[in-house]
Design a protein around this nucleic acid. Sequence first.
DNA 1: TCATCGGTTTGTCCTAGACAAACTGAAAAC
DNA 2: GTTTTCAGTTTGTCTAGGACAAACCGATGA
Lengths: 311, 311
Amino acid sequence: MTEQSLPLAGIGIAALERDIGVGKDTLRVWERRYGFPKPHRDAIGERVYPADQVEHLRLIKRLMDQGQRPGVLLRMPLTELCEQSASTAIGIGADEAVDWVIPMLKARDVDHLRAEFAQRLARDGLERFVTKTVPALNRRIGDGWMTGEIEIYEEHLYTELMQNQLRSSIYALASRGKRPHVLLTTVKDEEHLLGLLMAEALLAANGAWCLSLGAQTPTSDIVGATVGSTIDIVALSFSSAYPWRKARNVLVELRAALPGNIELWAGGAALIGRERMIPSVVVLETLGHIGTALTNWRKLRGGASSEHGAT
Amino acid sequence: MTEQSLPLAGIGIAALERDIGVGKDTLRVWERRYGFPKPHRDAIGERVYPADQVEHLRLIKRLMDQGQRPGVLLRMPLTELCEQSASTAIGIGADEAVDWVIPMLKARDVDHLRAEFAQRLARDGLERFVTKTVPALNRRIGDGWMTGEIEIYEEHLYTELMQNQLRSSIYALASRGKRPHVLLTTVKDEEHLLGLLMAEALLAANGAWCLSLGAQTPTSDIVGATVGSTIDIVALSFSSAYPWRKARNVLVELRAALPGNIELWAGGAALIGRERMIPSVVVLETLGHIGTALTNWRKLRGGASSEHGAT
DNA sequence: TCATCGGTTTGTCCTAGACAAACTGAAAAC
DNA sequence: GTTTTCAGTTTGTCTAGGACAAACCGATGA
């Protein structure tokens, strides 16, 4: 009785923008230029995107994030798109065997998942867990979702459990006062926290003092939070759904607004291949670079902590 | 050379959207309807908002967040706006002396705040901490923000620190398998997590097994997450910012979609005074009612756990 | 091998109109 | 006396097609 109420099921353009990470204007202009996506219209003529087109778009966005061109992908039939996706997936290969996570998620075996995460973390250490196991798990979940192997809420559940695991590790590591002091957050419209938590865990493991403001802090608040504080570094995370141009604009704007003695670090899938793009912003292409960046900072700034009064 | 290049300094509409948190469409329609903001135009006719208008808008947004109406604020001269901002300052009653939090926040004394939270929690116990101290702190922070005593990002910071405190308490309490099994989350467009975490802490302290899906889970995912699981209760939190009619609709819809043997609990400021509104949904007006509701559930359902197969 | 240049692609901004959801306040019903 | 209902108003988001700059492409020249 509950399902039949909406035979024209689908989502609106604002929801699609959030889901896929492509602006409303862009979605409309794609429809005009390439004839795809071609959403249904509801009673008042507004766009309603059915689930299959949303999936189709998600695949396109994924390939775009790998550097493919929109005009080509949007004209390509779905079958060919799938081949593209399959052929790019080979190169990565087996980082670590993590297939166990799928059946556990399907069985809603929450206690078991929690235990498995905790056990692997204890056995391998935080650094290996965060740089190897978690990315492998994320990839496996992402693939499983693309192939329809797992449902959206199972991905949601995984994310939630992993976030809790990381939070408790970070809490246990909390160091007092040690330099550098790092402010972590994501900007408005970027709600993915997992990457940020992974970064925070690595920073904390390397003895940095971390302060996370959580997700979606407006830029003016980020600046405000550094005023009169002892923050040395502001670190931001951008997921692949975040349009990289927008990320660049935010970074340029924030760089200009922050005092010069505070470094600005940025990372996440949205910035891969864009290291050179933003002047005087440290772009960390992978989590592994955090350690190096931290060592560099300590070498350059660590000894000169008395300089903090400089304008 | 870099600074002087723009004598007509200002920001574009996309940057303003990020800064203030008001959509591009809304900004344009305000200009059309109320004549404010009235940005300059650059060489190609695009909007350029000067700094004073940005500040003016920031003030308006702040008063809007307190519940004032846009049409009134946008027609009001700046001077009157400032008076408004100043005059909303009145104190309520003293639940508990929590004024200490303000200077600590102003001093960005994060370590001290964390320590203070942890100490009070250890001294008074979780139940008292969550039902008395945290609400008192929330109220004090809210007041401080209305009066301009503290900045928005300081409220943000408080929320983040408190959430971490609660999360670590919950993690430490995690009970295995004990009934009832409670699924906690907020619905789409409700991003406030603090109330949900407070509820989770109380539930966990009373021996319930909790699974939090975090914020903004789509209703279909909430239903999906209960399928094939052992969930007894779905619990939702609605902050005061959530329109109560919308809350009622969501609850009615969700009640219909969930199997009858799963209870639906809802709480939060949006539902105060609306206990009778939704049939067969348990509306918890205050956090204190969680304990009673739990006892009731155990009396009615606890003994009959073999019923869980019923559809 | 690297820089320069025209042509093409692509995202974002523009205008102005429309409409549903949310809010307001008064009248009606419990 | 409280709560629900209802009409009127406010308010945000959507639609359409046009425009243009910045980014990207491939070819030509140094």
